[in-house]
Design a protein around this nucleic acid. Structure first.
Lengths: 177, 177
DNA sequence: AGGGTATGAATGAAGG
DNA sequence: CCTTCATTCATACCCT
């Protein structure tokens, strides 16, 4: 299928991986300038660039090194997802902590914390060199709590399928194998 | 054996992956055989299987592991969409390369490339293994669909490369907001 | 030199 | 059909 992991045959595989000049092939390795700019954009509020924006960004960043549009696309996808993930993780932890203490009287505190929800530990904040608008990450994300787990969306599956297991065994065009 | 990546515990071996016996199964994890067959079908031209086809395929593939109709449905949806997306990105990237030269008025060339949108595969070999009327493989999609995109892209470019091409000091932060 | 972490890439599943 | 989200795989990088 789509190149499983086309992995760079580089390592050990004698295959023509001509990335000699320290540029490792295989997967995009952003330069610090590229990362800085991408991060700036993200901090400025850009979360999901459109195709055109991706193109522009890619084109411009290519000045600093090899880059493809898909790299930009993935970068934003991952960055956004990970921020969300981190936030979720934090909130869950907070909840756990609370729960753990049989809190009978901390309801007030509970709400307070919930409302705050984010305020991830300033782990990465070391980068706060920028003067700026610290509003950045606020992002009023819609809290569409999603029913995860095996909730099974079969029901939600709007696509219509015939009458279930009718056992229509047949010729099958799967004679590929 | 070049087994380096491709698979590993996850979807490999088409056996270990049994969500069946109480194992928590979050989402379908196709076995390699299933992927291979689906890919073959896709390469044979099947793009949008009908409900019946989906049913049949699903039934057949269930021999290789747990699978539901919706999985087949989604697989084709995703595969098709991603191939198209990939193609689009690649073609644009190529364009970028060209644009780097001075040709700001290469609209002719521009369109030529768009129309080409080379399709490396596109093997028509298998022809009608499928008795059905599934001509959809031909994907009667017209080009006019692309026309629109072309315009947008063109606009974006003119905007961008209107006068100079090396502004390393780009002010990305504002251009896309 | 090995383990942990950060992150690029891929893809199943939905929503619209 | 297109876009987006969640999850997972595969690596690069860093640390002890």
């Amino acid at each position: 299928m789509s190149g499983f992991c086309i992995t760079k045959a580089g390592r050990g595989g004698g295959s023509g991986n001509s990335c000699g000049t320290g540029t490792k092939c295989g997967r995009w390795n952003p330069t610090t300038e590229q990362v800085k700019l991408l991060t700036d954009m993200f901090r400025s509020g850009l979360r999901t660039p459109s195709t055109d924006e991706i193109q522009n960004i890619s084109t411009q960043l290519s000045f600093y090194g090899k880059i493809e549009s898909k790299n930009v696309f993935y970068w934003f996808q991952n960055h956004k997802a990970r921020e969300r993930q981190k936030r979720r993780r934090v909130s869950v932890d907070e909840k756990d902590v609370m729960m753990r203490r049989d809190d009978k009287f901390s309801s007030a505190q509970y709400f307070t914390e919930i409302n705050h929800v984010n305020e991830p530990e300033r782990v990465i904040e070391t980068l706060q060199l920028f003067p700026l608008n610290s509003f950045d990450e606020a992002e009023p994300e819609k809290f569409r709590l999603q029913a995860n787990e095996c909730n099974e969306a079969a029901a939600a599956f709007s696509y219509k399928f015939g009458s279930e297991m009718d056992l229509p065994q047949l010729d099958l065009r799967l004679s590929f194998l």
